[in-house]
Design a protein around this nucleic acid. Structure first.
Lengths: 234, 234
DNA sequence: CGGAATTTTGACGATGCTCAACAACGGTGG
DNA sequence: CCACCGTTGTTGAGCATCGTCAAAATTCCG
């Protein structure tokens, strides 16, 4: 086994990224054009307006995908985690800006080479279609929240999602989660301001639905049912 | 040429729907499972919560794709026109409700059969991937509008899109468009109320940027530049 | 022509944003 | 070890925008 294959074999996301649709043998060509790249927290990876010349798999870390207005208002339209595919498929010019939230490792492919690989690997293309369709459904659900839900519902819904996706049950029957992003990023994600997010969190705490120490990232969902109720009706 | 092929050959969207990626010969299998269906205005085609058992091409008419909360708040997350593909790909349960806005003709396929056809026709699958990716980009742009733009910007932006996409230049240098949906649907699309949409339209008229007669669907963009300005900064 | 549905307009109020001050935390250097 | 400072988060007061409720105007359609 040569070095290239060795690298993929040891890859953290060999089994969760698009690559999981390919056998070791099929992976060779893609592997040869893949370039590992480490990005520090806060750095912009691709910028709205730039031509799209490469795609990537997220290997480790986290990134935000954001749209923004000319005068600087920003909305986070998606988050990327290990195994996720990064890039605006088939767009000649990026309309979104992607920024690393934490130190991040990417496995980056030149656009044309990657698209050629899609041509020869139907299972990979299918997987990409499935993921794109899922992202579209998610984006549409979020449009409902951004347009029609009030601040309380949005914040409660966000914590519910975290709890369901990454929560761990503790001794007292609560569900512990670590909020992976800052208040500012939460606000940018939920279509609110920092102050409103902060107020809603203290409101949830006052209502006894969640518990956390001020300004901490660690949070315990005390009353899942109650929180679910708030997520649906303020 | 048998009847089935004849039907596709005469089809209004033979060259704009996914079918345009297939030759007449390749179309036979898909054609045989396609069922034409006419839906009256206002009728629900697929409902959130139902299992996804079929997909369809829109042949004529228009539909809305909407997400809604338990207590009845609704957000239109997409519109479908002739040539568009309809259905939540690979979802086992629909999360969105699709309703005809006008009398509509569909060419409907059973889910499993259609997915099998995708397996054998790489160009069709590629076209579907391109369209899904484009829809995702569009949804994300709209998330920015719903979360961060004010009522004036949203209404102006909507008219801009109409004018660019379906406008016709008139004698006085204005751009004429027909607003294809009711105020209520505009509101549901823009994340506003009917009253706010109405007020913003009269505001644009008072500012001399557009002209229309009260409660009419026909509208003239008088000052495109000015309208563009409002779309970006209220 | 008449009644229902849609649209417009007005008055009022709540929600969430802005601005501002304060608190908590983490690192840095004396 | 602790004073200092920048960053992040919390809290409060006031206000603007948009939603709600209600009524009038207009259109649609039988």
């Amino acid at each position: 086994m040569d070095l290239v294959q060795q690298r993929c074999h040891d890859c953290l996301v060999r089994d969760t990224s698009l690559c999981s649709s390919l056998s070791d043998g099929e992976l060779v060509a893609l592997s040869q054009m893949g370039r590992r790249r480490t990005v520090p927290a806060g750095q912009v990876v691709t910028c709205a307006g730039d031509p799209v010349t490469s795609y990537a798999n997220v290997v480790s870390g986290a990134l935000k995908v954001a749209a923004s207005t000319a005068d600087g208002r920003e909305q986070i339209v998606g988050l990327l985690f290990p195994g996720d595919f990064m890039g605006q498929l088939f767009a000649d010019e990026a309309s979104l800006t992607i920024t690393a939230l934490t130190p991040t490792d990417l496995c980056s492919f030149p656009r044309v080479g990657f698209e050629r690989q899609l041509d020869c690997h139907a299972r990979m293309e299918r997987m990409l279609l499935e993921r794109t369709a899922a992202s579209l459904n998610e984006a549409r659900e979020r449009m409902l929240a951004l347009a029609r839900k009030n601040a309380g519902e949005r914040v409660a819904g966000f914590i519910m999602q975290l709890a369901r996706h990454a929560g761990t049950r503790n001794a007292e029957g609560g569900v512990e989660v670590t909020i992976p992003i800052s208040r500012g990023e939460m606000a940018a994600f939920l279509g609110l301001t920092i102050e409103t997010v902060s107020r809603q969190l203290t409101r949830l705490k006052a209502a006894g639905l969640v518990d956390f120490v001020k300004a901490e990232r660690r949070l315990v969902v005390v009353d899942m049912r109650g929180l679910e109720g708030v997520a649906e009706t303020g």
